[in-house]
Computed example of a mutant assay.
Amino acid sequence: MNALAPSILSADFAALGEAVKLVEHAGAPYIHVDVMDGHFVPNITIGAPVAAALRKHINGIMDVHLMIENPDAYLEDFKAAGADILTVHYESTKHIHRTLQAIRKLGMKSGLALNPGTPVEVLECLIDEVDMVLIMSVNPGFGGQSFIPYALEKVKQVKALGERTGRDLLIQVDGGVGLQNVQEVVNAGANVIVAGSAVFGAQDVSATVQEFMKLMNE
């Protein structure tokens, strides 16, 4: 079953616990937590202490996306905060293979994010250490951006790589996905969809989550 991962980046930061409960009750199995440091991306969001506080309100999967420099220094912090999946960017560290191994050694699923300008070919030597591939369909750093169409081709390439190597990958897409294009993204091979403003910016958040899940699994 394909899964929706609402991004709290677009939620009311003064009421994150309520936001999480709302989308989980509506059927979203993942909660996507964007961590930004103002260096790797031009925005600052939250750190491990807020993630730990949020974990108390999450019954499903806490999916933490590190958009930060030197992610290795914070892996243990986010493990302690309760992350189930920890995603780092290929572009954020010189020794990505070691970072992915360290995430798994801590008992979390390892995610690898690729920026729009990073080709799928970089996965060839890393695929055995990756549980989830995150295709960025916008340039990371801000919510509410428009979907980059070439991301669909990258999703297809990741799906083909997983099939060729016998890996049952989670393939996540983040950025510019809404009700109008989510089926196209899923048809390309994605099975976990991140949606921020499309969910939390909707007039009826619960109904929007349910419509996403319906469209993704038709």
Rank of each mutant, 00 (worst) to 15 (best):
M132W: 05
G38K: 14
V64D: 03
M213I: 14
S92I: 02
T118P: 11
G201Y: 12
A73R: 13
P71N: 02
G176P: 06
I127T: 07
V20L: 09
I148N: 03
P71C: 02
P42M: 00
N217F: 12
N187Q: 15
M67C: 11
E184R: 10
H95R: 12
T87L: 13
E24G: 06
G175P: 12
M132Y: 09
L66H: 09
G196Y: 07
A48D: 14
A198Q: 11
A15L: 04
V41G: 05
Q145G: 06
H39Y: 11
M62I: 02
V35N: 11
M213Y: 04
G144Q: 09
V177N: 02
N191E: 02
P119M: 06
M108P: 13
V33R: 02
G144T: 09
A190H: 09
L112F: 09
V120A: 12
V88K: 03
A80T: 14
G111Y: 13
I61G: 08
M67V: 11
S197M: 03
K159G: 02
V23E: 08
N59F: 00
E218K: 14
F142I: 01
E18V: 00
H89C: 04
V173L: 12
D72A: 15
V138T: 13
A81H: 07
L170C: 07
H65Q: 06
E69S: 15
A14S: 13
L86E: 06
A207M: 02
P119Y: 04
Q203M: 04
V122G: 00
A53T: 07
G162V: 08
G189E: 13
F147M: 08
P149W: 03
K156N: 00
G141P: 07
I171Y: 09
H95V: 02
F200H: 14
L126S: 08
Q180G: 01
D12T: 05
V205S: 07
A190K: 07
V177T: 02
G82P: 05
P71Y: 01
E76T: 14
D77C: 02
L22G: 00
F13R: 05
H32E: 10
F200S: 11
K21W: 00
I171F: 10
H25M: 03
N139E: 15
D12Q: 07
P119T: 06
T99N: 04
S146D: 12
V173F: 11
H25P: 00
I96N: 03
I44N: 06
V177E: 01
V133H: 09
N181F: 08
V173P: 05
S146E: 13
G27L: 03
V120N: 05
V50A: 04
